[in-house]
Amino acid sequence: MIITATPRYTRILAEVWKPLLVLFVWDCVVTAFYMLTSARAPSLPLTLFGTALALFLGFRDNSAYQRWWEGRILWGAMINCSRSLAREIVTFMPYAAEGKLWDLKRTIVLRHIAYVHALRCQLRRIDPKPDVLRFLSAEEAAGPFGRTNIANGIIDGTAGRIAKARREGHLDTILHSALERTLTDITNAQGGMERIKNTPLPNQYRFFPNLFTRLFCIVLPVGLVETLGWATPVGSTLAGLMFLAVLQIGDDLADPFANTIHDLPLDAMCRTIEIDLLQAIGDTAPEPLKPDRDVLW
């Protein structure tokens, strides 16, 4: 996620120079044709076309932003539930600074850190195993690694360990129910994230805006050449670029977990959870992630 109000100009140039060059070449061709020949450019209702296209793109961008913001809300809920889980595990079970019971508490907290990292990797479609193995032994990770949904396998194992603590008398029914509610909230947040990831914008919201924007850019110099003359390439290219930029905004926001500079900073949020949970059990925690050239991953 870009955290500055003004992105770096080199980054902007890297993203727009290709469509900008194509637009400029096309505008030059159209301008030269009509200025150097006797052909007359047809009168086109560009204002009507542009207004309709702008409304269409606006609806699409709003839908894309709603998906991006919902993803942020769900990860905010995940951070809060993770803190609650660690606090409940440490405080609900009988106090012990060492021994078997403390090992169980520590194992559950470390499993949850592994869980959020596994979820992050699954949403970004990258291999979660290296991050999971930082917190789980190969034996503990064997079960989740055999599941299609590794993150869900980890949290199922966590629920099993909590149930075992209940059977051994370390938790009563009320406290066990409270922990189960926290795990349910975590699972609900994961389900919401997976819904966003696995359900793209409707095809009409993806195909037609792209088609109409490119058609508008094609006819734009034809409608402007009679008015702007030799200045048509500059005016038409800049106007077309604005529409292409609005189109690209929707593409950038539609998938908040795509692991690009425009997406949610999942690395930073998982690091926040990792820090809070490690400190909850008295372990040494890493430093918060810092932006890399104004981008927080």
Rank of each mutant, 00 (worst) to 15 (best):
I73S: 13
N152W: 04
R147L: 10
V225A: 03
E194D: 10
S38K: 09
I196D: 05
T4S: 11
I275H: 04
P221K: 04
T184V: 13
I89K: 03
R106M: 11
T232V: 12
V225Q: 04
N149T: 10
E98V: 12
L266Q: 04
N203I: 14
Y205L: 15
I162F: 04
T260C: 06
F257I: 08
K105Y: 10
A231R: 06
T173A: 15
L296Y: 07
G240T: 08
C121Y: 06
L183E: 00
F145C: 07
R8H: 11
F56M: 15
I186C: 06
A5V: 11
R83C: 13
F49Y: 13
F208I: 15
W69V: 15
L171W: 04
I281W: 01
Q279K: 15
A189Q: 00
H170F: 14
E180W: 07
G153H: 04
R67V: 10
T31D: 02
T227M: 05
P7G: 10
I79V: 15
A64L: 11
G240H: 06
S236R: 02
L215E: 03
V222C: 03
L241I: 00
P288W: 03
R125T: 13
L266Y: 02
L23N: 09
Y34F: 15
F145Y: 11
I126D: 07
P209D: 07
L244E: 07
R271P: 08
L13G: 06
P256V: 11
L85G: 03
K105T: 12
P128L: 13
R40V: 15
I155A: 01
K105F: 12
V132K: 01
R181T: 14
G50Q: 11
Q66M: 09
D255W: 05
N149P: 01
K105R: 15
N203P: 00
L23Y: 05
I108P: 04
D292I: 13
T4R: 09
E139I: 14
R195A: 14
T10S: 13
G50F: 08
R83G: 13
A280D: 06
R67L: 10
A280L: 09
A97T: 14
R181I: 14
I186A: 05
Y205I: 09
I275A: 03
L238N: 00
Y65H: 11
A39M: 13
A151Q: 04
L57W: 05
R87H: 09
I126G: 06
A268R: 06
K290V: 15
D103Q: 12
G157R: 07
W69L: 14
F208K: 06
V132M: 12
D283W: 08
K18H: 01
T107P: 00
A14E: 00
T107F: 06
V25N: 02
P291Q: 08
N188M: 13
L253Y: 08
T213S: 14
W17A: 10
P286L: 12
F145N: 03
D294M: 05
P265R: 01
V22C: 02
I2Q: 09
A142T: 10
D103Y: 01
L183R: 00
Y95S: 14
L74Y: 03
I2S: 03
M193G: 12
C81S: 14
P265I: 09
I155Y: 02
V109W: 02
H176M: 12
A254R: 11
D185P: 01
L175W: 05
S63M: 13
R40W: 04
L183K: 00
T260W: 04
T6L: 12
